[in-house]
Design a protein around this nucleic acid. Sequence first.
DNA 1: TTTAATATTTAGGCAAACCTAATTAATATT
DNA 2: AATATTAATTAGGTTTGCCTAAATATTAAA
Lengths: 220, 220
Amino acid sequence: MTSSAEENYLKAIYKLHEKSGNMVTTSSLAEMLKVSAASVTDFVKKIAAKKLVTYEKSKGVKLTDKGRLIAVNIIRKHRLWEVWLVNKLDFKWDEVHEIAEQLEHIISDDLIDHLDKHLGYPTTDPHGDLIPDSKGKFAKNNSKPLLDCVAGDKVKFIGVAEHSNNFLQYLTKNNLSLGDEIFVESVEDFDNTFSVKLNKKENKVFSKEVVKNLLVAVIE
Amino acid sequence: MTSSAEENYLKAIYKLHEKSGNMVTTSSLAEMLKVSAASVTDFVKKIAAKKLVTYEKSKGVKLTDKGRLIAVNIIRKHRLWEVWLVNKLDFKWDEVHEIAEQLEHIISDDLIDHLDKHLGYPTTDPHGDLIPDSKGKFAKNNSKPLLDCVAGDKVKFIGVAEHSNNFLQYLTKNNLSLGDEIFVESVEDFDNTFSVKLNKKENKVFSKEVVKNLLVAVIE
DNA sequence: TTTAATATTTAGGCAAACCTAATTAATATT
DNA sequence: AATATTAATTAGGTTTGCCTAAATATTAAA
């Protein structure tokens, strides 16, 4: 059986691999999971014995197909629960992560099927992240950071690259929600400050730090 | 902090006390929780040290007010989740127990408040069991077993005294749902077999074993 | 009331998932 | 290339919640 701890390790390995593309190190896992490096070494040996990861001593771990499937499934559950919390229970997008961290470990395929149906088979979560299907497949993602846009571009805000409550609350405060249209009026090339028009009415200025974390799709 | 194990012990003690009215014995707890008697003795000492129960060696345990509040809160959560599973996710009343057993341990008062609101502040679960309020108070319950009725009584089916899937499925198969009207046509006094009319149309015969587990309320 | 049966507790252990401190391996610096 | 720094592993421990087997209580039966 796969315990919560195991699911959390696999999910962490998946996310760290996504970010860096490399083998996942003991120390990065220790930091993400908030446990000691010694604990990670221990645990990683156990899941390697179960063929959920491949482990090279002192180098790091990589998910096997089996491990990846479990990880992606947890991500699927997490994101479906987040959709539920926001769309059905009226939570804000910055309030759902911790609760979904618990709900994602509930074990019942039937439950997830019913939940998925109840939600209308959503393909993205409240932060714009893709929800994989039950086989672990993700839809194609053609988003890019607003930072990569230039003056004159008209795009749609479809996701965030940074999920901290801090950033999410900044966006809320600045009246920016998923689906909004962003028209790039100008870009200051000294510091990459963006001057934009939101939904054809409101003018805003966003720093580089902000625009690199706003994921957008070109309209049409 | 209260762990899942602790919550399950307190809930089991609460339920066993409900049933017998007496102090709860080690062996009854062991049987209900499917652990050894030795484990129960161990655990009971720990929760007694936390003042969640009073423990008299070789005699049994009783909940303190503190322990009872935790137990009732778990029951509240369990029943709210069952309402959700049946009313919103379209599960059948015999499919929800195991899933709710997991969901009841999710920790977030906020979540329960939102869920309660989402469900329209229900006062009973899909089996007719009362849902206590957040302070642990139950509404008055004026139900009685159909067995206590006599020929000529007109009552409403409002709950079950036996929650096994077996019994629930028997009722479903016999077309009996909460809220149905039951008119007692006659009672065989040799063996307490009841002949009834359901919802003013369908005639049925129920054994003593069945009618003692059907909880009803007199109409008007 | 003495014995037999049943229930409970004690003693000693185990697995999971964590820890710290000490050691070894890998990487970076002079 | 030798040394210092940083990262990873090993060794030994802890806590939680469970176990079995042996010892004591309690309750029931002869």
